[in-house]
Design a protein around this nucleic acid. Structure first.
Lengths: 201, 201
DNA sequence: GACCCCATGTAAAGGGTTACATGATTTA
DNA sequence: TAAATCATGTAACCCTTTACATGGGGTC
């Protein structure tokens, strides 16, 4: 299971479930999401299987913390997963399903509105990733091509996943634009046809 | 739930669960996937909720077929869903998670192999979608820009989803290439550095 | 006779979301 | 004193995957 391996990957240094949730939001949010209510039992499972071990430590503020660290078996399991074939899951894109059947509404202005809202959402996400990229590049003091100028190999790997998000969202925005153009052309043509008919009548 | 609505969308004419599975493979496979064992109970649920009704009919070959058709309520439910906001689910891209942590292997050739295999998979999928597009364009006898030349609005809607798949996979392949180039540059640089050190020693 | 396609399902297990419960400390 | 943050969890439900069960008809 991927969540388990992501948790193993994040535990290069000891951390609690709560810490790991923060880390999720900070660093892998663009390709994975997990609720706390999913993380806690996952950590317990991993400990039961001997891939993690935990100790309870008092917290400076708030209740006690259960802090996990990787065992040797945990590291082995992670490396095995990293050497696996690329895991590609089935896409399930509900908004494409909506669009696919939207012809049934027999009103292209519905589709136009839908695509405009979709474009907005995609563009917002793209802007967020680009801001993260800019911030990163600033932090490491890199000006030109991040991919070749990054020193650290670990940072390089992380950065490539951000690049994927940017490529992907850019292509989605482009697709929205292509589609919106086509819709507008179709609507314009339909309007002209109607006018001609009205004039003729 | 989206599966339910996709089934409603597909039932413009009466069909059995088995038929609908074929239809899944034929027409929405690039953005949705469902097992038969998921489709049968889904149809039952929809019938219980009054959005579908079914009749059992004998089959020319094999066992009896349970054929479903939409009710008025079913059509209403579908249209409501179509008028909803675009539904964007959380992406969960396991292969990006693998890549994100792959620096831990401390061997860029592992990453290179991984990215080559990933590129292969993406390119294969892209080729499949492009073949479908070509076939389609041939079938409707359209030569130039499909999006504006398609007559039927329903066909237009379906075609846009195929275009999304093509855009998306093309951008993934491009990202793989960008990443592979960067990896090769890094490896070349590392090799040069090693040589210099060997010469010096 | 073996195998594939037609056709319908159930059952168990895995993975994810939403809601609920609890309670301490810090900040406005 | 109210709200936010720290911190850990459980429970119910929903969706998906995998495995199992059944049996007729046609083809090699």
């Amino acid at each position: 299971m991927s969540l388990d391996h992501i948790l193993l990957g994040m535990l290069h240094e000891p951390a609690s479930g709560y810490d790991l949730k923060q880390e999720f939001e900070r660093s892998v949010r663009h390709f994975w999401f997990a609720e706390l209510s999913q993380i806690y039992p996952a950590l317990k499972r991993l400990e039961d299987r001997g891939l993690l071990q935990s100790t309870v430590v008092p917290s400076s503020r708030g209740p006690e913390r259960r802090v996990f660290e990787t065992t040797e078996d945990g590291t082995k399991a992670l490396e095995e997963w990293l050497r696996d074939e690329p895991i590609i899951a089935q896409d399930r894109l509900a908004y494409l399903a909506q669009l696919f059947f939207m012809g049934k509404l027999e009103d292209l202005s519905e589709t136009e509105g839908f695509m405009e809202r979709l474009r907005g959402m995609m563009a917002t996400r793209l802007a967020i990733l680009q801001a993260i990229e800019a911030e990163w590049m600033g932090a490491i003091g890199v000006a030109g091509d991040g991919l070749t100028e990054i020193e650290d190999d670990r940072v390089f790997h992380m950065y490539t996943t951000l690049r994927m998000g940017i490529h992907s969202l850019r292509s989605r925005v482009e697709w929205c634009d292509e589609t919106l153009n086509a819709i507008r052309e179709r609507r314009a043509r339909a309007a002209t046809r109607d006018e001609t008919e009205v004039t003729r009548a």
